[in-house]
């Protein structure tokens, strides 16, 4: 039990250490604004943008799959929302269209993976560019700007760090609120529903799941469709960030999303991962990014730094699970 708890809490410790280091560094070399309310709001808002689609990715990774199309599906949903708002649709219709787009993308992935038995990596590698192409067709290969007056106030202020008194709930960014609500919901689902336990079983050993009478294809399709739902919400947050829709913005976002899951303790071989960990993983990425920008470290170095953190995280994870003898051998010989 203690070991299990440590595993849950490990990424959190890493997050605190990173925050502490940046706070100290910021006090000496920066403008001292790293821990300011404004910066915390912006940072947690960006974390939500990664975390929400990463919830879906967590499900997929626990089930032993991967979704490379998450990035382009995210901006496709966001673009659909932008187009709908531009056309002057009521906000509810626009949101429904956005969710439908995301879920359909996930459903397409799930059906293809279940029906063809092609590995998820390849299927989603294909759909990644397909979704990009569809997005470019519907947007006419340009960025879609809906008029400001068509964007409701709560959505306008969903993401930003400004006007904190005018949020849905004052002081707490709406995007963070959304992420926490969804996170609690999906974490409950993973722990307390038969579906959630089945996802773990499939990721741990698909043939065992089949032996136990679990309907593997249907479960897999459901996993990807639910992930599509979270990707769509991610699209909403993306739209709230840039107030426009450009399908090609999503290229590369999937790696950020996957990184959040892995930093949170998800195993790419399936069977392991947690929603809480993924939240922390998303925070780690955005805190590093924000901290580096507060210290005026160029973006390129930030990328290198994040890359190193990911690799270190995976090595630490390996050390905690099983016993990689190579590691100990290094010291002995």
């Amino acid at each position: 039990m203690v070991k299990k708890l440590l595993w849950q809490i490990g990424p959190l410790i890493a997050l605190f250490v990173i925050m502490l280091l940046f706070t100290i560094a910021d006090r000496y070399w920066g403008a001292g604004k790293f821990m300011s309310g404004y910066n915390l709001r912006v940072t947690s808002g960006s974390a939500a943008l990664i975390a929400v689609p990463a919830f879906g990715m967590t499900l997929i990774i626990i089930s032993g799959g991967i979704d490379l199309s998450a990035g382009t599906a995210l901006t496709l949903s966001g673009t659909a929302l932008a187009l709908s708002l531009k056309a002057g649709d009521p906000i509810m219709n626009a949101l429904m269209l956005m969710l439908l787009t995301g879920c359909l993308c996930g459903l397409a992935n799930g059906v293809m993976i279940s029906a063809t038995k092609v590995v998820p990596f390849i299927v989603t590698l294909g759909t990644m560019t397909i979704f990009l192409g569809i997005g470019q067709i519907i947007s006419g290969e340009s960025t879609v700007y809906p008029p400001r007056e068509n964007i409701p106030d709560w959505l306008n202020l969903c993401y930003t760090g400004k006007d904190s008194e005018r949020y849905l709930i004052p002081k707490i960014p709406t995007s963070v609120l959304l992420a926490i609500t969804l996170g609690v919901g999906v974490a409950t689902m993973m722990r307390y529903t038969v579906f959630g336990r089945n996802v773990f079983a499939i990721g741990s050993s698909e043939s065992t799941a089949r032996l136990c009478g679990i309907n593997v294809p249907v479960t897999v399709i459901a996993v990807y469709t639910i992930a599509g739902f979270f990707v769509a919400i991610g699209g909403l947050l993306y739209f709230a960030d840039v107030k426009s829709g450009n399908p090609s913005d999503g290229t590369g976002k999937e790696l950020e999303i996957i990184a959040a899951v892995v930093l949170g303790g998800g195993s790419l071989s399936g069977g392991r991962g947690s929603i809480f960990g993924t939240m922390v993983g998303a925070l780690i990425i955005t805190v590093i990014r924000s901290g580096c920008s507060q210290l005026s470290i160029p973006n390129t170095y930030t990328q290198i730094f994040i890359g190193c953190i990911i690799i270190v995280a995976v090595i630490v994870d390996q050390l905690r699970h099983g016993s990689p003898e190579w590691f100990f051998r290094m010291f002995r010989s």
């Binding site: 336990r197 741990s204 065992t208 799941a209 069977g271 392991r272």
Partner: peptide, 21 residues
Amino acid sequence: KQEGLAQDLSLIENTTLGNMG
């Protein structure tokens, strides 16, 4: 090893797999 049990999961999880309803 491969099919009979999900090796990563706990004893309880394995025992109740497929009949948690």
